[in-house]
């Protein structure tokens, strides 16, 4: 094994932190829905990409600054999340069945994206794409930095909301024991709808970040499922800060594996960490 230069190693770690931010941003809503609503919402990935494509469309065709889409897309996706939760609860779909139903929704979203934008690659050209700054000899690209900043800000905001507000406490109580929480006057149905809306709105924010950084193609939806699942499980279901920590840990581990050993080892890292977690801390994942 050749010893890499310090600059190479630090630049790789930085790259890992940034991709970890993207993992965290994508996993945040998924983990909350899984932990608090007991739904394994595979459609979350579909919503991320749908939002990314809509951001691309609004920016490329409509000429809107991609960051301004944050005022349009998350509220719209909140409504979608509410509607989806209403349907799932109306038909009393269990946690396991939600996996199948939302997988179907993901396939439908992917087909819809292919129909509208075709299967070809789409790259959003924005004023942010080329921007970068240098800190101590390390290059920091602006889109990735923004993604990380948004992931950190939203993770802490949701953590604080869950911990310090009545609404957050009610949500945690509902997740802990819904009938008892209802007996204390908590409106389980209303909270579920709101929480689902928030989770899908978070998917939408992740989509905007995705469009800022990555080239889009519909079939990429499924290539993110494995690693984001690992991030969510390592971070803890229902945790707001967990996906941020685990996302960065996985991202940095992959990047260091690529810098020190071989890039082809990177996919092994996230699942190795997950297996180790299951072996040594079985109650936590």
């Amino acid at each position: 094994m050749a010893i890499p230069s310090l600059n190479l190693l630090l630049q790789s770690i930085l790259s890992g932190i940034f991709i970890g931010g993207m993992y965290a941003m994508t996993g945040l809503g998924l983990g909350l829905a899984w932990g608090l609503l007991r739904q394994i919402n595979l459609a979350h990935f579909g919503f991320v990409f749908l939002s990314a494509y809509l951001c691309y469309q609004m920016s490329t065709v409509g000429g809107i600054d991609p960051l301004l889409t944050v005022f349009v897309l998350p509220p719209a996706f909140f409504c979608v999340g509410v509607a989806m939760q209403w349907v799932l609860s109306r038909f009393r779909i269990s946690a396991f069945n939600s996996l199948l139903v939302t997988f179907g929704v993901t396939v439908m979203i992917e087909s819809g994206i292919q129909y509208v934008w075709t299967a070809d690659f789409r790259k959003m050209q924005s004023v942010y794409a080329e921007e970068k700054f240098v800190v101590g000899g390390l290059f920091v690209p602006l889109p990735e930095f923004l993604t990380l900043a948004v992931a950190v800000a939203l993770s802490f905001a949701i953590w604080a909301a869950m911990r310090f507000t009545d609404l957050g406490k009610a949500m945690r109580a509902m997740a802990e024991d819904a009938p008892i929480a209802a007996a204390f006057g908590i409106n389980e149905r209303g909270l579920s709808l709101a929480l689902s809306g928030i989770c899908v709105a978070l998917a939408s924010v992740a989509g905007i970040c995705f469009a800022l950084t990555f080239t889009l193609t519909p079939t990429q939806i499924f290539s993110w499922v494995g690693v984001v699942f690992a991030v969510v499980m390592l971070g803890g279901l229902g945790s707001a800060l967990g996906p941020l920590v685990s996302g960065i840990v996985i991202g940095v581990s992959e990047a260091v594996a690529m810098a020190l050993f071989a890039p082809s080892w990177a996919p092994i890292v996230s699942f190795s960490l997950l297996i180790l977690m299951l072996l040594f801390r079985p109650g936590k994942a």
Binding site: P4, N7, L8, Q11, S12, L14, S15, G16, F18, I19, S223, W224, V227, G251, E254, A255, V256, M258, A259, P263, A266, P267
Partner: peptide, 11 residues
């Protein structure tokens, strides 16, 4: 399907 090309670029 590799997602992060940063470390490869650095190498």
């Amino acid at each position: 399907g590799n997602r992060d090309f940063g470390p490869i670029a650095a190498r």
